[in-house]
């Protein structure tokens, strides 16, 4: 059976409207459906023609506020970042307005030639992949489970997800830091007291693998609500009938998921996954706060590394260069995301 076409019609929110015909999003203002009212033809035509000219401008007017706001706030800082990365700006230049010397590609060659930088990049990639896989895996699993659990269980779980989502990073991280503490941490207490393992005084930070397990826990815990709730909503759009029919046709659980469920939730899944990649790649606060505001070098991730170069080594230019490199590294993902974005733009 071919169930790959997303069974779109279940767009519940605008309500019971049957949405006739393919939703051909491209609206051509001139060809208003003559159907309904039999209004006087000629003046209306003139009116619409007049509107067509205005219509050419209208989209620009509509994006203008957003565009202006983005440009006013972000465009110049962005350009400034690029300029700074080709200069050597330290505190003195920043404060006195003294012209900063131009150094060409020196910042970039310095960074790219620094062994530590590449260690940081690999570590960041690894951490990001692990976090994204865990977040998306658990999120998807929970979303599917939520469909199948008793109502009150689902309500309780949704409540917990919501509450977790609303905690400020600072607070959530402090709490996880206590959990992981060697002397008074709840993790060690539970492992020792309830599971009979000897974890008394165990320090989770000495070995960065264990340390990143703890940091990953905060990151994943903090991201699951968004992923689970979103995917749950996506799953509710999968038509029950199709699933049941597929099951009757002898498709196993995996088959049903592969041919019925996945095609429906795919766009949402991709979107959420891409955002997770971006967020987890730029993780900063969780590491910084978990390590008591002074992370050891083996806990350096890209976000921290660029921060450290900018503020602690007094080279705002290096910080700028690193963030531009980060953007380039992310642009692989970005291109994918963009294609999704544009493709969707085309489809209508």
């Amino acid at each position: 059976m071919k169930a790959a076409e997303p069974p779109v019609p279940g767009l519940r929110q605008p309500g019971e409207r049957p949405a006739p015909g393919p939703a051909d999003g491209v609206s051509v203002p001139g060809v208003a459906t003559p159907s309904s009212t039999g209004s006087t033809p000629s003046p209306a035509g003139a009116g619409i023609r007049g509107k067509r000219n205005a219509g050419a401008l209208l989209p620009y007017l509509l994006i203008a506020p957003a565009f202006v706001a983005i440009a006013a706030v972000f465009v110049w800082p962005l350009i400034k970042t690029v300029i700074m990365s080709f200069q050597d700006v330290g505190r003195r230049e920043l404060w006195t307005g003294d012209p900063a010397p131009w150094v060409g590609f020196e910042q970039f060659t310095n960074i790219l030639g620094d062994g530590e930088f590449w260690d940081v990049v690999w570590r960041t990639l690894l951490f990001m992949v692990a976090c994204v896989v865990a977040t998306m895996g658990i999120g998807l699993f929970l979303a599917q489970a939520m469909q199948r659990m008793t109502n009150w269980v689902r309500l309780a779980l949704t409540g917990a997800l919501v509450a977790a989502w609303s905690l400020p990073l600072l607070v959530a991280t402090s709490i996880f830091r206590w959990f992981a503490d060697s002397d008074y941490g709840v993790v060690n207490m539970v492992l020792t007291k309830y599971l009979g393992l000897d974890f008394r005084g165990h320090n989770w930070w000495l070995d960065p693998k264990q340390g990143f397990l703890m940091i990953g826990a905060v990151v994943v815990w903090g991201a699951i609500p968004f992923v689970a709730i979103t995917l749950y909503a996506a799953l509710t759009q999968v038509p029950k009938e199709l699933e049941e029919a597929a099951a009757l046709d002898g498709a196993g659980a995996a088959g049903v998921f592969r041919y019925v469920t996945w095609p429906v939730i795919k766009p949402v899944f991709q979107m959420v996954a891409t955002l997770s990649v971006i967020w987890d790649f730029n993780v900063f606060g969780q590491v910084f706060l978990m390590r008591g505001n002074k992370p050891e070098p083996e806990y350096n991730l890209l976000g921290l590394y660029s921060y450290e170069k900018a503020f602690e080594s007094n080279s705002f230019s290096q910080g700028a260069a690193i963030s531009l490199i980060t953007v380039l590294l992310l642009s692989g993902v970005a291109v994918y995301y963009l294609r999704q974005l544009l493709k969707i733009g085309e489809v209508e």
């Binding site: 767009l11 929110q13 909503a233 996506a234 766009p267």
Partner: peptide, 11 residues
């Protein structure tokens, strides 16, 4: 929950 997807699923 409704909002998050009906937007994206359409794609």
């Amino acid at each position: 929950a409704a909002g998050l997807t009906s937007g994206a699923v359409k794609g």
